[in-house]
Write a protein that binds this DNA or RNA. Structure first.
Length: 481
DNA sequence: CCTGGAGTTGTCCTA
DNA sequence: TTAGGACAACTCCAG
């Protein structure tokens, strides 16, 4: 029987895994994972993602009956050495879409073909391949709605999910060799020295089985009223599937088709809305594919001359959830404590960093990259550029969230804010989101002393809003200067 | 070719 | 109290 390397990357699952099913259908399989910080360079996974990966690999290895082999280093060298030592006939993988992954994989493909080893790549991660969706003039879309409605929904339907391989034969264990340096998952050193990750990991169940359970729970409890409820950080209406999707513990195809099945229900508009959120994930990957400078360059180059502030003390307050703006602090602390932040709160803290503090979106992007368990190069950069106003189809410059109004509107009972900012536990709703405006006796009876046990606001919201509007106005006429 | 409406997630002011 | 308009510029796309 033929032997194939199966190279796991961002597809840490057995079901709806087209490359794995193809490999299993005609070969004995050597399942491999390689931690590749070499090619990733500055885009190497952040700390929270690594903690997730650690547990996801353990779950995957269990499903593979302990047969998963893990390595660390440059995949080209490692894979070729395995292939040569072991007389491998072919290699299978599902495609990745980050620019550094694309160029790495191209090189590996060439290398393997030079050694007469067949390379088979599949789509396991995206509903629509980025190069397949183009405008009539064959250029990429820059606006979400026509991209999604016409380009995606108007095109071919996403493929049906496929079952896990019914038969998965493993090739004999790879002979140990010094140069191959086979590692235990523990040896990848994915967990940080600090115990910071314990709380994060305790907030989540990780792995393919957990991902499917999460989807089932969401369908049972969250999808009804999703469209409205998704805006409220204390409600259970968001899917929280993002980390599972990022690591490929569940495929978007599986989720998509599960949603179509339910389309005769009374909440089909909720389902459509959820599917469009999957569409936003696709759009981010699409933008990264067609604009590979997305992580580095403002897509709107007018922003290259934006008068960003440089005050890194303000950045540190934002990172630590010590801005004195309760809903912002709640969000930043949720991020630190759980590795996650509710979507609406991401927008609020993002708007605050970029507009009220006038700090470059890159600072926010880097912090999220390190702290989020769902950190994803495409989504993270596309979203930060959207918030900052410099992306394609970006938020209009005048959309500056008022964190007081947002709190009152979307966390009216204060459950979310009080959970993550316990200093304000006893503040009445009326002043929970703007304690600096509370009368002294209210602050006193709530046990809040501004500047002592909770910070005074680090910027004046009204002033900083006007400053941001002026800064954005300065871009308007720059071409005449 | 041109024209015009619409575009994920807001806020503030005025009547 | 509430509803409507202003707040850019540009891209997409149907007519």
């Amino acid at each position: 029987m033929k032997k194939a390397i199966y190279w796991f990357r961002q597809d840490l699952r057995l079901s709806d895994n087209p490359a794995l099913s193809a490999a299993a259908s005609d070969s004995e399989v050597l399942p491999i994972y390689i931690l590749d910080d070499v090619n990733a360079g500055e885009y190497s996974m952040g700390a929270a993602s690594r903690s997730w990966l650690h547990h996801s690999l353990i779950a995957l290895n269990k499903q593979l009956k302990g047969k998963l082999k893990v390595y660390k280093g440059d995949p080209a060298n490692i894979l070729l050495e395995i292939a040569k030592n072991y007389s491998v006939d072919s290699i299978y993988w599902n495609r990745c879409y980050e620019p550094w992954q694309i160029s790495r994989d191209k090189n590996i493909k060439k290398l393997f073909e030079e050694h007469n080893i067949a390379v088979n790549s599949y789509n396991g991660s995206l509903l629509w391949e980025p190069w397949e969706v183009l405008k009539q003039d064959q250029t990429p879309y820059k606006v979400f709605t026509p991209y999604y409605r016409k380009g995606c929904l108007g095109g071919r339907a996403p493929r049906e999910p496929i079952a896990a391989p019914s038969k998965l034969l493993f090739a004999d264990a790879i002979p140990n060799s010094d140069s191959l340096n086979i590692k235990d998952i523990e040896d990848l050193k994915l967990l940080p020295e600090k115990t910071w990750h314990h709380k994060i990991i305790n907030s989540w169940d990780i792995g393919e089985e957990a991902a499917h359970q999460r989807l089932d729970d969401f369908l049972a409890q969250g999808i009804s009223d999703y469209k409205e409820g998704r805006n409220f950080p204390y409600k259970a209406n968001v899917s929280r599937l993002s980390p599972h999707l990022h690591f490929g513990e569940i495929s978007p195809h599986f989720i998509w088709h599960k949603m179509q099945f339910k389309n005769d229900s009374s909440y089909s508009s909720d389902i459509d809305h959820f599917c469009s959120e999957l569409g936003w994930r696709e759009f981010s990957y699409y933008l990264l594919y067609h604009f590979p400078n997305l992580p580095k360059q403002n897509l709107n180059n007018k922003f290259d001359s934006f008068p960003w502030a440089q005050d890194l003390k303000l950045l540190s307050c934002w990172q630590r959830g010590q801005t004195g703006i309760p809903i912002v602090d709640a969000g930043m602390r949720e991020l630190w404590q759980t590795g996650y932040m509710h979507n609406r709160v991401r927008m609020i803290v993002g708007s605050f960093l970029v507009k009220n503090l006038l700090l470059h979106w890159h600072h926010g992007e880097r912090w999220f990259w390190d702290c989020l368990i769902d950190a994803d190069l495409a989504s993270n950069n596309a979203s930060w550029q959207w918030v900052a106003g410099c992306g394609t189809d970006a938020a209009p410059y005048f959309r500056i969230f008022n964190p007081v109004t947002q709190g009152q509107k979307f966390d009216a009972a204060g459950l979310y804010t009080r959970k993550f900012v316990p200093e304000l536990q006893l503040m009445p709703e009326q002043y929970l989101f703007n304690p600096w405006e509370a009368p002294a006796n209210i602050l006193h009876s709530a046990g809040v002393e501004l500047g002592s046990n909770y910070p005074k606001p680090i910027v004046d919201l009204k002033e900083s809003r006007n400053r941001a509007l002026e800064a954005f106005a300065s871009l308007k006429h720059q071409e005449y200067e």
